[in-house]
């Protein structure tokens, strides 16, 4: 994220710089500008991120506290990784989003549920799991981000290939 901001800033500087400076410098700036715009097009969605750290960062969950108030209901052993039922519920107050992350999947972020007024902080879905992994529930509550984890053993991976 920081790198992108940096590139963005460089780009802004570059545009003004190029306008003011000599023709000799211009091609260099132009090349830098092209690179920056390609980078911002390539990764707009946290669902495309591959590294668990980056996913947690995109959800502001890097330093989130583990909370007992979040309950993950899922099997301890999943025979078929293609269909693993997972429920996440919490007693935390003022929940706005519940995200579901699978630590060992190629794209770890599986889902973000946005709860609107009157919706209970209790969601169920079914996920794919490439292999044995931790399922991480990330809850944005009124007093900050909380997380909970559960390990699920997968005997048959669900991502094909």
């Amino acid at each position: 994220m920081k790198r992108r901001t940096f590139l963005g800033n460089t780009l802004a500087l570059a545009t003004t710089g190029a306008a003011l400076s000599t023709g000799l410098l211009a091609p260099q700036w132009a090349a830098a500008a092209g690179e920056a715009s390609a980078a911002s097009e390539a990764s707009p969605s946290p669902f495309n991120l591959k590294a668990l750290d980056e996913v947690l960062k995109s959800l502001n969950a890097t330093d989130a506290k583990t909370s007992d108030a979040i309950k993950i209901k899922a099997p301890e052993i999943a025979e078929n990784g293609a269909v693993v039922p997972v429920s996440i519920s919490t007693t935390l107050a003022g929940v706005s989003t519940i995200s579901l992350v699978v630590s060992n999947n190629p794209n770890p972020l599986a889902a973000t549920f946005t709860l609107l007024e009157g919706t209970s902080p209790d969601v169920t879905t079914r996920i794919k799991m490439a292999k044995t992994a931790e399922v991480i529930a990330i809850v944005q509550a009124a007093d900050g981000v909380h997380i909970a984890k559960q390990n699920i053993k997968v005997t048959l991976g669900g991502c094909g290939g």
Binding site: V102, N105, A111, L116, T119, D122, V123, K128, M129
Partner: peptide, 25 residues
């Protein structure tokens, strides 16, 4: 016509996806 749930999904959701939730209604 009032939104009660919005879900954003990635490819890690199973084929023929299922979801369940409750709301005050």
């Amino acid at each position: 016509d009032k939104e009660v749930m919005k879900a954003n999904w990635g490819g890690s959701i199973s084929k023929n996806p299922y979801m369940a939730f409750t709301y005050k209604g």
